[in-house]
Nucleic acid binder design. Structure first.
Length: 1107
RNA sequence: GGGCCGGUAGCUCAAUUAGGUUGAGCGCCACUCUGAUAAGGUGGAGGUUCUCGGUUCAAAUCCGAGCCGGCCCA
């Protein structure tokens, strides 16, 4: 067997100098394959508590975009987290593969124009072509998801086109039918005339278009004059049935003159000027003022009575009625042309009024015979002819065009027509109260998504039209008597609700077994495919009646609505349903409020009386860097593949996951990607740093645990371990709040700020020591524990780099994959809040000291004799007292002097900062003035008396005002209180001092005494020499252990003497075994603090070899 | 047109719960440091907190009216 370098095989193996994400990720993919990492991780949790996650199935047209990528990455991070917490997670992915979008894509590919082409091609062939297309798209999507490092059960996704899944939809629908929630309805729907099918309201996309805008006069019968209506759809005029007005609106009768003719017109008062201007009338006079109520009952003549001989003429039609959809201040005239055969509101009002439904338009948008003169024309094409006919009839008041938004088919972009047809509905409005109650059984993040958005939607949701007159979908499992009058005309004109209850004479089949049992033909339930072409011909004969299948297929939203049991292959497989259902967790974007969140609620409630999910995490959309929505069709997008090419999978995931997942949109940001890469590089470097030392010393983390070296731990070790505990606690809390972004921020902060910038800095010298020491072992054990737990915490986010680091750290001593690890538990033993706070103060002091040093012009390399820490309070003083040595070390100070809060430096001056929350209530409208005075004051001691003295002018002025206003004078004069101010030190010129603080509050000042002594100069110059020799070693690319000969020439005698005092130090630090003249070596001239030096080095191995 | 969410530094966001002198990271500029670091450190520039009005001693925060973006609905 050939030896391979893979994570998990060789502890502390050599790793890349640089973090190289692409190579690393390839290695990890291969490794996962090799050890069956995913399968082992699933198996590892098989005894855990079940956690039933249901994947909202992506639609299989097109490839993964940044939004899908974010969605799947979020799912991945939570599923990995749940697994690490011990849950046995159901993680079956799914794909939504039916529906009009795929049909239109396939039609495009095949060059089809309309349904006739499909019929000619053959339903069976077309369905097969759709299936192939969907499967192809699925492959691409799934390859992408796997490439993003998402771990789900890719071997067995649920597909909505599989018979067992389609059966799950049949089952759900049949349960709803059993509850009496299925009915056939005669309703106004949006129809795509190209696709020749109803489409759901949420499939209608609104686009700005130019349409006719006409004002039409309807001549009144039995009285003089006309009422005026406005419409942008002249093609609906043939179906006019009544005119609606606002009962309480104000209307006027106007005598208007044009070209010597006079007309009496009735219009809303608010609109009359505009309408008359449109009609180019020269003069007018208001002759009547009426309310809408007074117009009711007026009858008029149909304006196209001759052209459309079959027009509505039933009793009560062609009259004025009240309609609550009329607005006398909106568009139009305040009188609304109403055609129940078209508009939804018109339809509903027409039903109430018991009018016949006249719709002279077919499913293809072409006028039928009933349209008389216009028969055979596509409705939009007939607009011009209708307008000119109206004109000829003297009915046209004005004709123009208007830009407005008009509904279009979401897939083929054809303008929709509103017509009345027979459709099948799930009447969820009958169980609306139940739906609203069921919502309460689910927890949502963020909570407003449920309590505002979702509830609003559910409250207003209409019945669900589930039928589509198409091919690529789950066939309706409904059989009706073959001689049945399917166009539903019988119900038209009925004053009751259209369609009525579910037909007594309707058979709804619930599964394949039942299908095989009841149909007249031979059907093998194991083999039957269930698509339209296989079930269309099946008939059922019972009690002498033959039933044929309703030819429609389901709205594709119904497919995914049954995912909670479809995922479990229920009802075919009932082995897990009772244990798992309903889903514990679902996670989708906010557009699913009206989509999947809703359809599942409706279907779950209709079929099973319950909401099918218990917890929802609702995220936002991925936006472009400039905040625009991404759009594939407009080529406005960031391709996840490009993101991976530029930065790698882990980086992309880290970026995506560092965004708030609760309802807020995410702006993609290349800078943010780069920052994440920098963070991961930092982690890589932290990880890489101790490896050579551990290797050299044969450190064995199983032999030498943290517990073994407990007594040798130094302060920084204990501190970083305490920080680790806090980080774990913080992350766990954020994860449980479904804010993985805050969790990863905490982790990054820990790695970058605490481990890399502080801990590693602090332990470098300990690891650099050549001989074994207890301290070094303690540092090894500490950083090992820190890294080992860090990669577990990071694993759900960045599974690749975590895997490689884990493998390199643990060898074969632990799990095969980091993803089998438990979520790191908080260990109370290592918690130490006081120490964390102490170090926070020390770091603040260090930062201030660095600032002060820079002010004093003294580099960190040069020691300073003394740093004075003036602590504002006991807490700070205690921290400094406890850790003086560490502070000396970090500040490179010979001595730390603590000035406690009770004492102070006489040289110092003070000023005061006001606390406005105290000052405001006490001084009222003068608080700002007092604040300014306080800020400007300079005093010698930080006492309230001194301060009051300094700002006395302002205080007294206020007191005078107050007593002048308040004659009773018993209110006490506002005075300064301790709580209103905090004192701030002012630095003397000769000492550099900088304030330090925590969380924005000043807590003291660090003063750096930068005076020089010979001893300090000696060390300073020596360290300057060391630094330059190190640089020269680096020039030669010498190994860290390599010995050299050093040649040092310094012109200034005084400096030369100072440096030679530290000869031992220099030799040790630069690994110089010999101090002598070097002839051939690497030679360089330097200037150090104005002193010229010449340094030469020569590797000893090379020197020996050349001898 | 309606509902929900958002608008704070060049960018990403925090501070809005409960009103009290607007902050961080990234980016930029200058200086500095460098034998784990494509790093690190110090300083700096950068703000009409979308606009207008109101409440208040005091508003990014509360209220009202708009504007812009996103989602959903019509």
């Amino acid at each position: 067997m050939t030896e391979r370098i893979t994570p998990g095989m060789s502890r502390f193996a050599e790793v890349d100098d640089q973090y190289a994400p692409h190579e690393l990720e390839q290695r990890v993919f291969e490794y996962w394959d090799e050890v069956d990492a995913y399968e082992k991780t699933v198996e590892h949790r098989s005894d855990g508590d079940p956690l039933f996650f249901v994947d909202g199935p992506p639609y299989t047209s097109g490839s993964a975009h940044m939004g899908t990528t974010w969605n799947k990455t979020l799912k991945d991070v939570y599923l990995r987290f749940f697994r690490m917490q011990g849950y046995d997670v159901t993680d079956r992915p799914g794909y939504d593969m039916h529906g009009l979008p795929i049909e239109t894509r396939v039609e495009e590919e095949l060059g089809f124009e309309n349904k006739k082409d499909i019929e000619e091609f053959g339903e069976e062939n077309f369905i097969e072509a759709c299936k192939e297309y969907a499967e192809e798209q699925l492959e691409g999507l799934q390859a992408d998801f796997q490439d993003f490092g998402v771990w789900m059960d890719w071997s067995d996704p649920y597909k909505t086109v599989r018979p067992e899944y389609m059966e799950a939809a049949w089952w759900g629908f049949s349960k709803a039918a059993e509850r009496g929630l299925v009915e056939k309805g005669h309703r106004s729907i949006s129809q795509c005339p190209r696709c020749e099918t109803a489409i759901a309201n949420n499939e209608v996309e609104y686009e700005d278009v130019e349409d006719p805008s006409i004002y039409v006069k309807f001549d009144l019968e039995d009285r003089e004059g006309s009422i005026v209506i406005w419409t942008t759809t002249p093609w609906t005029i043939p179906a006019n049935t009544f005119v609606a007005v606002d009962e309480e609106g104000d209307y006027v009768g106007v005598r208007a003159e044009k070209e010597d003719e006079e007309e009496l017109l009735y219009i809303a008062e608010a609109k009359h000027e505009e309408v008359l201007r449109e009609g180019r009338y020269e003069d007018y006079e208001i002759v009547e003022e009426l309310t809408g109520e007074e117009l009711i009952g007026w009858s008029y003549e149909h304006p196209l009575a001759e052209e459309v001989p079959d027009h509505v003429d039933a009793a009560g039609t062609l009259e004025v009625y009240a309609g609550d959809y009329v607005d006398t201040h909106g568009d139009g005239t305040g009188l609304v042309h109403s055609a129940p055969g078209h508009g939804e509101e018109d339809f509903e009002r027409g039903q109430e009024l018991g009018f016949p439904i006249f719709c002279p338009v077919g499913g293809d948008g072409v006028y039928t015979e009933e349209a008389g003169k216009y028969e055979g024309q596509f409705v939009k094409d007939a607009d011009d002819e209708i307008i000119s006919d109206l004109d000829e009839n003297g009915a046209l008041l004005a004709s123009g065009t208007v830009h407005h938004s008009y509904g279009h088919c979401w897939r083929c972009d054809t303008g929709i027509v509103q017509i009345v047809t027979d459709q099948w509905f799930i009447t969820i409005t009958d169980i609306k109260d139940e739906l609203l109650e069921n919502i309460e059984d689910s927890e949502w993040s963020p909570d407003w998504a449920r309590d505002n958005r979702f509830r609003d939607f559910v409250e207003e949701a209409p019945d669900w039209n589930v039928s589509r007159q198409r091919y690529w979908g789950i066939p309706l499992p409904v059989w009706t008597p073959e001689d049945r009058d399917d166009d539903g005309a019988a119900t038209a004109g009925s004053p009751e609700r259209a369609g009525g209850r579910a037909d007594e004479d309707m058979i709804v089949i619930g599964d394949r077994e039942e299908l095989a049992e009841r149909v007249d033909q031979d059907v093998d339930p194991e083999e039957v495919d269930l698509h339209k072409d296989t079930v269309d011909e099946l008939t059922i004969t019972e009690d002498g009646t033959t039933y044929t299948r309703v030819p429609d297929v389901f709205d594709v939203w119904l497919d995914s609505s049954v995912a909670s049991w479809g995922t479990l292959n229920y009802p075919e497989d009932d082995s897990r349903f009772d244990e798992l259902w309903p889903a514990d967790f679902i996670l989708e974007a906010h557009d699913q409020t009206r989509g999947w969140f809703w359809s599942q609620l409706g279907m779950g409630s209709a079929a099973l009386g319950e909401i099918p999910y218990e917890e929802v995490l609702m995220h936002g959309h991925a936006l472009m860097p400039d905040g625009r929505a991404m759009s594939k069709s407009k080529d406005i997008l960031i391709d996840p593949h490009e993101a991976i090419d530029r930065h790698g999978r882990d980086v992309m995931r880290m970026f995506l996951l560092s965004n708030n997942p609760q309802g807020e949109d995410m702006r993609f940001d290349w800078d943010g990607m780069q920052t994440m890469e920098n963070h991961l590089r930092t982690l890589w470097n932290v990880f890489r740093f101790p490896l050579p030392y551990m290797r050299l010393d044969d450190f064995d983390p199983q032999e030498t645990t943290l517990e073994d070296v407990d007594s040798d731990l130094e302060l920084v070790d204990e501190w970083v371990l305490a920080r680790l505990q806090s980080t774990k606690a913080e992350m766990t809390e954020h994860f449980e709040d479904r804010r993985q972004d805050k969790a990863v921020d905490a982790l990054i902060d820990f790695v970058v700020e605490d481990v890399s910038r502080f801990y590693v800095q602090a332990v470098r010298e300990r690891m650099w020591e050549e001989e074994d020491s207890a301290s070094k072992e303690a540092a090894y054990a500490t950083i090992y524990r820190v890294l080992r737990e860090t990669v577990a915490l990071l694993a759900p986010y960045a599974p690749f780099i975590s895997e490689e680091i884990y493998g390199t750290l643990t060898g074969d001593a632990e799990h095969d994959t980091v993803h089998m690890c438990d979520w790191p538990a908080i260990e109370e033993y290592w918690q130490d809040e006081q120490l964390e706070e102490d170090v926070a103060f020390l770091r603040a002091i260090e930062e201030a000291g660095a600032n002060a040093r820079q002010q004093a012009g003294r580099k960190l390399r040069w020691p300073v004799p003394r740093v004075v820490v003036a602590a504002d309070d006991e807490r700070v003083a205690a921290a400094v007292e406890r850790h003086t040595a560490l502070l000396e070390d970090r500040l490179n100070a010979r001595e730390i002097e603590l000035v406690s809060a009770d004492d102070r430096w006489e040289e110092l001056q003070y000023s005061a900062e006001a606390d406005m929350s105290e000052l405001g209530p006490a001084f009222g409208d003068r608080a700002g003035q007092v604040m300014n005075a306080l800020n400007e004051a300079r005093i010698d001691e930080p006492s309230l008396e001194a301060l009051e003295e300094a700002v006395s002018d302002v205080l007294e002025e206020g007191a005078e005002q107050r007593s002048a206003e308040d004659a009773s004078g018993d209110e006490p004069r506002a005075a300064l209180e301790e709580s209103m101010v905090s004192f701030v030190t002012e630095t003397p010129d000769d000492v550099a001092g900088t304030a330090f603080g925590l969380d924005g509050d000043d807590r003291g000042v660090a003063y750096v005494d930068a005076s020089l002594t010979e001893d300090i100069e000696s060390e300073g110059y020596a360290r300057e020499v060391i630094r330059r020799v190190q640089e020269m070693r680096k020039d030669l690319d010498l190994d860290v252990e390599e010995r050299i000969a050093l040649d040092l020439e310094i012109e200034d005698d005084r400096v030369a003497d100072l440096v030679s005092d530290r000869e031992d130090l220099i030799r040790e630090e630069v690994r110089a075994d010999e101090l002598r003249a070097v002839d051939d070596g690497h030679r360089k001239e330097w200037e150090v603090e104005g002193v010229a030096m010449e340094i030469a080095i020569e590797p000893l191995a090379a020197a020996e070899a050349s001898d």
